[in-house]
Amino acid sequence: MLRLEKLTKKYKTGDMALKGVDLDVPPGQVLALIGPSGAGKSTLIRCINRLVEPSSGRIELNGEDVTRLGAGGLRRARRRMGMIFQEYALVERLTVMENVLSGQLGYVGFWRSYFRRFPQEIVTEAFRLLERVGLEQFADKRADQLSGGQRQRVGIARALIQGPDLLLVDEPTASLDPKTSRQIMRLICELCAERQLAAIINIHDVVLAQMFVQRIVGLRLGEVVYDGPPDGLTPEVLTEIYGEEDWAATRDKEADETPAGHGVTEGDPLAAM
C-alpha cells in the first residue's frame, strides 16, 4: 500500500537526513520507527506527506507516486494520510469540535469550511469519534483548555475523520506521562485494528513500541538498520541502532518491573528508577 524506494533527503545545511530508505508497508500493518534523536525519523514521516520535500526517490501510495504530484494531487493524497503530532498541533483557539472537523478540510469547499457548515454526516461522524476517544462532553471546549492526553485524543480524532488509509504518527507519547502514553498507544493501535489502518509510529520508547506493534524498523543516521519483529530487538541490535549501552541491564530491570514497569527510554529519568 505504501512503498518507499531509495528515499533521500538532503537539507540545505548539507545534512543527509535520509540516505536511500526502502520500506514497504502492507495495508493494515502498524509499524514502529525507532532510532536515536537525529536519525531522521521525523524527516521520514514528513517526507511521506511532503510536509518536507524529499530530495530524491519514490513514495508510492496505493500505486501513485506522491513525489510527482502537483498541488491539487498532493492535497488529494494527503486526505488519505492522517497525521498525529508530538505536541498535538491542535489549533489552540478553536474548539474541540472545530479541530476534529478540520480533518475534513480536504473534502469541503472553502466557504463551507469558513462558515463551519460541514455536512451533517461529517458532524455525526465527528461526534461518534469523540465518543470513541472518550471526549464526547468536551466538544464545545476550546482546545487550549484540555490536558495533554485529551489533546492527543482530539488529534487522533482529527486524523481519523479524514478516513485515511495510513496514519503518520510522530512521537505521539513524547509529551505525555507513562500511563497516558500507554493509553494513547493502545488507543491508536486499537483504532488501526478496527479500521484496518496502516500506521507508521515514530517513537523513542523502545519498550512501549515492543508492547504494541507487530513490526519494528530501526533507523540510524538516515539508514534502516533493523526491520523485523519486536522480539528480534536483541542488545546487539539495540547497540547497532542507538550505540553502545548496557542494554542487557536495562532489559533485566524491565523484566523485574513488569507488568507495572514504565517504558524506558534512552536518557529517560525514569530509567534510573
Binding site: L51, R75, M83, S102, G103, L105, G106, S113
Partner: peptide, 26 residues
Amino acid sequence: DKTQVEAISATGASRWQVMAYGIMPQ
C-alpha cells in the same frame, strides 16, 4: 506556531483553508 499550520496542511486543506484554520485563529 508552525506546527498548527502544518497540521492543517497535512489534512489536505487548500491554501485558503490553511489560512482560515491554521493562521487566522492564531
